[in-house]
Amino acid sequence: MQEKRSTWRETLFRNACLVAVVIPLGLLALLIGDVVADGIGRLNGQFLSSYPSRFASRAGILPGLVGSIMLVVLTASLAIPIGVGAALYLEEYAGQETVGDSLAARAARVWDRYFATVIEINVANLAGVPSVIYGLLGLQIFVRVVGMGRSLLAGGATLALLVLPVVIIASREAIRTVPRHLREAAYGLGATRWQVSRRIVLPSAAPGILTGAILAISRAIGETAPIIVIGALTYVTFVPNNLSSEFTALPIQIFNWVSRPQEEFAVNAAAGIIVLLVTVFSLNLIAVLLRNRLERRLR
């Protein structure tokens, strides 16, 4: 009797889990299916290589596509080095200085730990701040104070700021999984902290760091709010060709088309969504392949 009831529960739990998987995946498939059905017909060379237009049939996604790809590259090349650097500092350097017994050495240690704790708490909190706030921050700092204007660079910097906390947290986790005995072996051979960080810790942690960074950055591609706030354009008839150029991005272009009353623009929006999804998936794929190659080389 007892046994039977527990198997019954087992089955129930299993099915509940299955439902929990099927419902969101099903909804997602439905959504994607619907979008694809609407937009696939519009997806052609003309659409990919044209600029926006008053006429839905002549409009295209080119500036948004190029803008988004450039944004991703910028965001990654700003957020990954800074994020990994911050994580290395927090894990390998902070609170690890000097064994001295002097007042100065003790003060340095206390300060170091205090500083690390403050950073830690802030990083965790920043990860939860809504993206539109980052947009306002980017508008104030990059666009106005630094004077970048409504440029691609300002957009990349703002998105980098947005993903930075997640990159830092993921990198710290990855760094923590590097076994202590490897660090000790390197220190025992007379390596400096930097040499240990650079040649032992970073290579071992790289796959984990990349995984975290990929997830964070592919979220950033779809972000609309922060780049609208900093003033990305919605009607761009040129491809951005340098960092201080004005720009648009896929989600903004899609948003713009969706908000038009004409039916044909809704079709454009659906096609745009397909382009965005494919872009995100292929970026993820590239990154995952890169990571796997790295992992194999390290093994």
Binding site: H181, L182, E184, A185, A186, G188, L189, G190, A191, T192, Q195, V196, R199, I200, P203, S204, R297, L298, R299
Partner: peptide, 23 residues
Amino acid sequence: FQKPNPFPTMSIRQNVLAGLTLT
């Protein structure tokens, strides 16, 4: 150390030279 701890990503040769290459 107590537990043998060669660097897992390195060959035998690289392990021997590790102290010199690292620094």
